[in-house]
Design a binder for these strands. Structure first.
Length: 579
RNA sequence: CGGGGUGUGGCGCAGUCUGGUUAGCGUGCUUGCUUUGGGAGCAAGAUGUCGGAGGUUCGAAUCCUCUCACCCCGACCA
């Protein structure tokens, strides 16, 4: 492709709408333009990248035994009522009416449609296993679209659905998809990490997410992984092995108030009482603002976690369902406990007390006495105080042991580019998907659903591979493999050489972007860096006089002069080396 | 939806508080000349319903009311 014949509107400045590097580069390098919040035009370069991702997905899905179909984007509301998701999906489901006032939805996912599709004709065990997929535009009316293609409202997704006769067969189908996913992301140059996840609203028995690990702000998900084995899980789902579990006393002892002069922090009391922090339960006081009928009300609430844990305020806030949550100031603490900060405890506390599950399992632990310089030992939940709820309130168990080996858990950030769900019979039940088994007995088929965010994967690649000048596409996703630049566009020998090399490489099967613009060298070089094509060929007077041109990989700094006659071999060689 | 913010040539912004000629600047765009290996110089140009509607006023980008859009923080998700 000649630059002058396509449409690559690069920009010098960062548009103010973008926050994330990958988002900025997508706009600056002329890959996309925004139409509305979370809705984008894909320009020629982007369309090529989307095709690259799609083709990799397609090849791997096909070879994993899935077959491609295409289902409608606009769907009748009836099917969604039937599955119950007309109500459950909430406002994210975009609804509209046709001219006859019939209710429709813009497809955010296709479990309903595909189950309905097969329900009349997938009637025998002989027809399974079956796996069908599509690559299609989806629409989810996100509360807050963000970060360009990362969380768009309209986006391209590959969604696959498997049908099996029983759990065992389904597990096989699921494993096949997981393997295909690893191959897909590997081929995209991304090596996604597979993590255990919460099945959430999709329902079903198990699920995994595939994360591209990044250390930029683009990593919206926190995942916990083992430093030795490949255990990894979403923070919400992560389990761990306690390295130093608290001692469990055999007998339940009587409470006792003890003096702890000048010991307000866990470390100080721990030191003073000669007991490890995990025998303490911290009582943390918060002010929570709830929505009231007329005006909002602020109520104090207490959270209890083990002495060696950190509170996760977001988890607490979610549990409470309040509008605002903040640590109570000294005045509130004194008013509530009658003691200065550092001695709050649950016994006799006049507000709701929410405890972490770990606290529920402790015996004879230490809490604040609600009196200055005093703590109470041998406290036991239910006997000495009551809780209003038990819920996980602590931060990710970083530093704890891996549940599957003797490694340690660490936290890192990732971009979710794909997921796999075991759906069980949720949709076959609600949508009426039955078949006859070998014994002529009616059964519900076991389903799985498998998604890959195609457009998000593309942006995730940029988030992972870029420098301060622009994108560094992995060669498998790059819109073109090679870009050719004439340093002095006006000079005929260079133009001729450019044309010749462009034709030669194109005929040899390379995808080439020939920058034939009448621009100065600096502009073209900068644009080439910005756009991120893996291999750059530059044609300049000096080299050309010796019958040479220059090759440079985007991710390397070396410039290599190569004889005109060996362009094809050298280009092949360079591209082998590219990421 | 709650909180915060922004709308002014394609892009990035100033001007708004304190109303007052033809609404500026940088960049980009067009044309010409000179340049030409990492975003050239000079000259001449084109491009604005100042997000929209209504109002106040002799006069509104600027003040008031309503409204729309977009961005950021939170909950949700490929």
């Amino acid at each position: 492709m000649r630059w002058s014949k396509t449409y690559i509107p690069t920009m010098r400045d960062n548009p103010s709408e973008a926050e994330l590097v990958s988002h900025k580069f997508l706009l600056r390098a002329g890959y996309m333009r925004r139409l509305a919040a979370g809705v984008y035009n894909y320009l020629p370069l982007m369309q090529r990248v989307i095709n690259k991702v799609s083709n990799i997905v397609r090849e791997e899905m096909d070879s994993a035994g899935a077959v491609e179909i295409l289902m409608p984007f606009v769907q009748p509301a009836d099917l969604w009522r039937k599955s119950g998701r007309w109500n459950d999906y909430g406002k994210e489901l975009a609804r509209l009416k046709d001219r006859h006032d019939r209710e429709m939805v813009l497809g955010p996912t296709h479990e309903e449609i595909i189950t309905d599709l097969v329900s009349g004709e997938l009637k025998s065990y002989k027809q399974m296993p079956l796996n069908m997929y599509q690559i299609q535009t989806k629409f989810r009316d996100e509360i807050r679209p963000r970060f360009g293609l990362m969380r768009g409202r309209e986006f391209i997704m590959k969604d696959a659905y498997s049908f099996d006769i029983n759990e065992e067969a389904h597990q096989g189908a699921y494993d096949k998809m997981v393997a295909a996913y690893h191959r897909i992301f590997d081929r995209c140059g991304l090596s996604a990490k597979q993590v255990d996840s919460d099945s959430g609203a999709m329902g079903g028995s198990g699920s995994h997410e595939f994360m591209v690990m990044v250390d930029t702000d683009g990593g919206e998900c926190t995942i916990v992984s083992c430093d030795k084995c490949d255990y990894a899980a979403n923070v919400e789902k992560a389990v761990f092995r306690e390295l130093n579990p608290p001692v469990q006393d055999k007998e339940i002892k009587e409470t006792e108030e003890v003096d702890t002069p000048n010991a307000g922090t866990i470390e100080e009391i721990s030191e003073f009482l000669k007991m490890p922090p995990n025998r303490f339960a911290k009582t943390l006081l918060f002010n929570a603002e709830f929505k009231g009928k007329k005006k909002n009300v602020v109520k104090p609430v207490a959270a209890m976690i083990r002495g060696d844990r950190q509170i996760n305020e977001i988890k607490f806030k979610n549990y409470l369902g309040c509008l605002e949550l903040e640590m109570a100031g000294p005045e509130t603490v004194e008013k509530l406990t009658g003691a200065p900060v550092g001695f709050a405890g649950p016994i006799g506390l006049g507000c709701a007390i929410v405890v972490d599950p770990e606290v529920e399992n402790m015996t004879n632990f230490v809490v604040g006495a609600n009196k200055a310089d005093k703590h109470i030992i041998n406290v036991n939940l239910n006997r000495d105080f009551k809780t209003t709820g038990v819920v996980d309130l602590k931060n990710a168990p970083v530093g704890e042991g891996c549940p599957e080996c003797d490694g340690l858990l660490t936290a890192s950030r990732g971009i979710e580019v794909g997921n796999t769900f075991m759906l069980g019979t949720k949709y076959s039940k609600s949508m009426g998907g039955k078949f006859l088994d070998r014994n002529g007995k009616e059964q519900l088929y076991i389903m799985g659903s498998y998604g890959i965010g195609v457009t998000r994967t593309a942006q995730a690649a940029i988030e992972k591979f870029h420098d301060d000048k622009g994108i560094l596409w992995p060669k498998s996703l790059a819109p073109y493999q090679i870009t050719i630049i004439t340093m002095n566009a006006g000079k005929e020998p260079q133009q001729e050489a450019g044309e010749k090399i462009y034709n030669e490489l194109t005929e040899a099967g390379f995808e080439v972007l020939y920058d034939d613009r009448m621009e100065r060298a600096g502009i073209k070089l900068n644009d080439a860096d910005l756009v991120g094509i893996p291999l750059r060929i530059t044609i300049g007077d000096k080299s050309l006089a010796e019958g040479k041109i220059e090759l440079k990989l985007r991710n390397e700094s070396d410039l290599v002069r190569v004889d005109l006659s060996e362009i094809i071999e050298k280009s092949t060689e360079f591209l082998e080396r590219a990421i």
